[in-house]
């Protein structure tokens, strides 16, 4: 599976959320087929709440880990 990573560190909401939604929509066919997963790297604490809430409503799975002071939000389809 291909992993596409977006680094949006430094951005605050709503741009962090809007950027995530834009990239999900741009890759929605591959995401739904399970061909790719998106990883969004962010340092916006609020994004760890807003992005999962929006993405799960769209039917995707989300996992969040923390690495070097940033949060990695992994978006995929099982």
């Amino acid at each position: 599976m291909n992993v596409i990573e977006f680094d949006i560190c430094g951005q605050i909401c709503p741009s962090a959320l809007l950027t995530a939604l834009r990239e999900i929509n741009a890759h929605k066919d591959q995401l739904k087929q399970g061909a790719i997963e998106l990883v969004i790297k962010t340092d916006a604490r609020d994004a760890t709440r807003t992005i999962p809430a929006a993405v799960e409503n769209m039917g995707y799975q989300v996992e969040i880990t923390k690495e070097s002071g940033c949060y990695l939000i992994r978006i995929f389809t099982r």
Partner: peptide
């Protein structure tokens, strides 16, 4: 919590 970091690479629009 190890989250202090200056990040300058933000789109110009922002």
């Amino acid at each position: 919590v190890g989250e202090f970091c200056w990040t300058y690479r933000v789109p110009r629009t922002q």
